[in-house]
């Protein structure tokens, strides 16, 4: 048993960045194709990151380098806990810590746009928090324990009873991971297409590490969507993997459906959706099943 968990943890640490990069590549390609553009190939994020790493460390590396590394550590820790079959709540907490340290790194670096991005990322995390915990509670109510081991191996598929939570989870991470959902980006020149406001003031190496951290985070979030389908049988794992790829495709489309809602409305709708749908779904499970 121990060897199996160590193997799965090692597999996560090695393969997670590539899986995350390919998922980011799929989202980028789909969103480009939806706009009519012929976006680069799927492995473009990997080559972008390697190109950045090849350029070595720049001059303004300051203190934000440490915070970015700590944030990377927590994202990896979240994945390790998840694939070691430990507590689901711990994974969500580690993800939250990963983002907190990213927010500190962005606000420490001092330039206006990165502070703007830090404020945006903090709002996103606070808006997404209730939905994540609702999902964890939903799993607990369904099969009695928080441990990922039992959730993955237990009998009936968790997708149907937790449909509302699944839809909510789809919207919030999509909203959360979508680059421009809460964006306050104020372009001083109207063609300012290159301000992505978080990793903008970072040093070259820190930007690459921040990118790798976001890949780890993306794999963990997608493996939680995979958890909705997993019940140990080979068929359901295949269905789960297909569904995670589908969520990547869905995000590429959702990113282009509408302009960025201004912060306050998106914030309220995220919390409203989390509580209403979450509670209704939990009540249904508790009474019927």
């Amino acid at each position: 048993m121990i060897i199996k968990t160590i193997l799965s943890v090692l597999a996560f640490i090695v393969f997670a960045p590539f899986a995350g990069a390919i998922l980011t590549g799929i989202t980028r390609k789909i969103s480009a194709r939806a706009q009519g553009r012929d976006g680069g190939d799927i492995t473009q994020p990997i080559s972008d990151c390697i190109a950045l790493l090849q350029k070595g460390r720049g001059e303004n590396s300051g203190i934000q380098g440490y915070y970015v590394k700590v944030s990377l550590f927590f994202n990896v820790l979240a994945g390790v806990l998840f694939y070691a079959g430990m507590d689901l709540l711990m994974t969500i907490a580690c993800l939250g810590l990963g983002i907190i340290f990213m927010v500190i790194a962005a606000s420490v670096s001092g330039t206006y746009y990165s502070r703007l991005g830090a404020d945006r990322l903090a709002r996103e995390m606070v808006a997404a928090a209730p939905m994540m915990f609702m999902v964890a509670i939903g799993f607990y109510v369904r099969c009695g324990s928080f441990d990922v081991k039992d959730l993955a191996m237990s009998g009936p598929v968790a997708f149907l009873p937790l449909l509302g939570l699944f839809a909510g989870y789809m919207l919030i991470p999509c909203g959360k991971l979508r680059r421009s959902s809460f964006e306050y980006r104020m372009p001083h020149a109207m063609y300012q297409k290159d301000m992505n406001s978080i990793a903008d003031a970072f040093d070259r190496k820190d930007a690459a590490i921040c990118e790798i951290g976001s890949w780890y985070e993306k794999t963990v979030l997608y493996s939680i969507t995979y958890l909705f389908f997993a019940n140990g049988t080979l068929l359901m794992t295949a269905v789960g993997v297909v569904c995670t790829v589908l969520t990547a495709v869905l995000q590429g489309i959702i990113e282009n459906i509408e302009p960025a809602a201004d912060g306050r409305r998106a914030f309220k709708s995220a919390w409203l959706w989390a509580f209403v749908i979450g509670i209704v779904n939990l009540v249904i499970i508790y009474i019927i099943i």
């Binding site: 789909i30 706009q35 009519g36 012929d38 489309i253 459906i257 509408e258």
Partner: peptide, 20 residues
Amino acid sequence: GVMKIGKSLMNSLFAEPETS
């Protein structure tokens, strides 16, 4: 009217991209 652009997104998704 939220998904007004959805229809044209779909056809540009499956149509040939317009880049030369």
